[in-house]
């Protein structure tokens, strides 16, 4: 599955014996998939989309023009309140997930065995759990308000959703960090050891600066995946783009002709946002691969 840019051969014997020993560092499947939509395939989607008026007109007297006009009217609501919340959730999740993931990843390579084992366990647990299950657990387990110093703070649903999404992101960032650190040749550790660097100094002065760049493409890959996954939180009632689109359609009497324009629009806006990210991720990946 890992068709790396580093391999220009199909002969198995010519490939490195242990091609990706460190796991997910170069695993950019999602970005690759997304970035490889060619203009031709996009035309195909537009063609499919253009079939819709034919079906719609045949079914009722609610016209395509009316449906599009409804979408146009609701656009500020769907985008301004809905999609913006998706983005806010994606930013915050990435922020929290990255901080927690870096700590967890560093924990995984700790020389303290119990710490390393438990960080590994937490990582595997959240990496291999369905996101929706994690979301439900956080939704139900978290209180809807907390008391700090006598004052009661409400925790809005979308913030709980951020914590729920941050768990799998944290676990995957943790693997990226661990993989990147392990991909630095052991000679670098030994050289630093022989120069009397402490473990802490070795990590921060020698190892991490070398693998920082290698972590950026997979990190961006996960950001795109996360953004695409934010509509999941509509199932929990968070008022993001999908929830608001449904509300808008209800306000327009739930004509079935509305489904394609509204959800089609959501599809397009996510694609338009994530496609450049995926392209840029692959460009960075290529650039760093050459330099390293």
């Amino acid at each position: 599955m890992k068709s790396g840019t580093r391999n220009n051969t199909d002969l198995a014997v010519l490939k490195p014996f242990n091609y990706s020993p460190t796991g997910s560092v170069h695993d950019l499947q999602f970005s690759r998939w997304l970035a490889e939509f060619s203009p031709r395939s996009l035309i195909f989607f537009v063609f499919l989309f253009s079939l819709w008026p034919g079906f719609a007109l045949a079914q009722s007297n609610y016209s395509m023009a009316q449906a599009l006009e409804a979408l146009w009217r609701w656009l500020p609501f769907v985008v301004g309140q809905g999609f913006v919340l998706n983005l806010v959730v994606s930013f915050l999740t990435m922020l929290i997930g990255t901080i927690a993931g870096v700590l967890l990843g560093l924990g995984q390579i700790s020389p303290l065995r119990p710490l390393a084992r438990s960080c590994w366990f937490v990582t595997q647990l959240f990496r291999n759990s369905p996101w929706l299950v994690l979301l439900f657990i956080v939704m139900l387990a978290f209180p809807f308000e907390i008391e700090i110093g006598g004052r009661v703070f409400q925790i809005p649903d979308w913030l709980k959703a951020v914590f729920g999404l941050a768990l799998p992101i944290m676990a995957n960032i943790s693997e990226i960090v661990r993989g990147a650190i392990l991909s630095v040749p052991t000679g670098q550790w030994e050289a630093a050891d022989s120069l009397a660097y402490s473990r802490h100094q070795t990590l921060w002065l020698v190892i991490l600066p070398q693998c920082f760049k290698r972590m950026i493409p997979p990190w961006m890959n996960w950001y795109a995946i996360l953004t695409m996954a934010t509509p999941l939180i509509s199932l929990l009632g968070v008022e993001e783009i999908i929830t608001l689109s449904r509300q808008a359609m209800e306000a327009e009497d739930n004509h079935p002709e509305l489904l394609v324009p509204f959800f089609g629009f959501a599809l397009v806006i996510f694609f338009a946002y994530c496609y450049p990210i995926a392209r840029y991720t692959l460009r960075l990946e290529k650039r760093f691969a050459i330099r390293q």
Binding site: P185, G187, Q188, E190, A191, A192, S194, L195, A196, Y197, S198, Q201, L205, V206, P209, Q210
Partner: peptide, 25 residues
């Protein structure tokens, strides 16, 4: 100690490679 594979720190210049340990350690 000097190694077979040199093991210089690739993200630092020659001078920085030499100066880092005396400065930091």
């Amino acid at each position: 100690m000097v190694f077979q594979q040199y093991n210089l720190f690739p993200h630092k210049t020659a001078l920085e490679n030499i100066m880092m340990a005396p400065l930091k350690v």
